[in-house]
Amino acid sequence: MEIRDLKFSYGDRAFIQGLNGHIEKGKVTTILGPNGCGKSTLLNLIVRQLKPQGGDIFLEGRSIQQMTAREISRKIAMVHQQNRAPADLTVERLVQFGRMPHQTMLSSRDEEGDEAVRWALKVTRMEKMKQKSVGRLSGGERQRAFIAMALAQKTDILFLDEPTTYLDIYYQMEILNLVRRLNREYGMTVVMVLHDINQAMQFSDDIIMIKEGRICYIGSVREGITVERLSEVYGIRAVIHESSENHCPYMIPLVS
């Protein structure tokens, strides 16, 4: 996926100016950056929730501006940060909405529908809860239910906007391990926004670091997160060590 010269502004305040970048197929890419830097905006521009003022995004060599919303929804699934659903809707019905891109407004007939829904419920371990209503789910279960809906779309690409925000550490790990499994076992390309730098280092292959609407770094996570860059992007002092357990680097912020 190619991002070329992307521009976007809220009102007349220029926000994102001339973004260029490349998102690798089959990898987990995390978008990092301080609050209000344009992470979510970039994610929303790529899935065309927002329309850019300039530039374009190319998916498999085709401009997404030329695709219909339906075509995009068959290629990219997105899990939003905040979701709304009627409280009495069952998990199974919710996940069935994920088949909308493959159905028409008038009929819910589609051949792979049941299979896709079953698979999505299985992967997210929501099978046992499929008759439970959304209003009675815990925060983590709720997030998994919406991920299951996105998975039922059966796309190759999955976007997640801050999937771990509002969850405690147990559910955060559950979601991130699920994301990893989707990538490793099912070959999905994952693009997500995270706040936690350590989680980004653990769970992603590539990162995109954004500051004030510009990309500061794009590429492999190991080379990307350095003490200097953390100070440049977030304005914090930190040390980076490597875990003796799994040889993954981790970061500890210091008192400045």
Binding site: T68, A69, R70, A77, M78, H80, L94, G98, P101
Partner: peptide
């Protein structure tokens, strides 16, 4: 399901 989900479902 809200505007955002409606959009991402096409």
């Amino acid at each position: 399901l809200g505007d955002k989900n409606t959009k991402s479902l096409g």
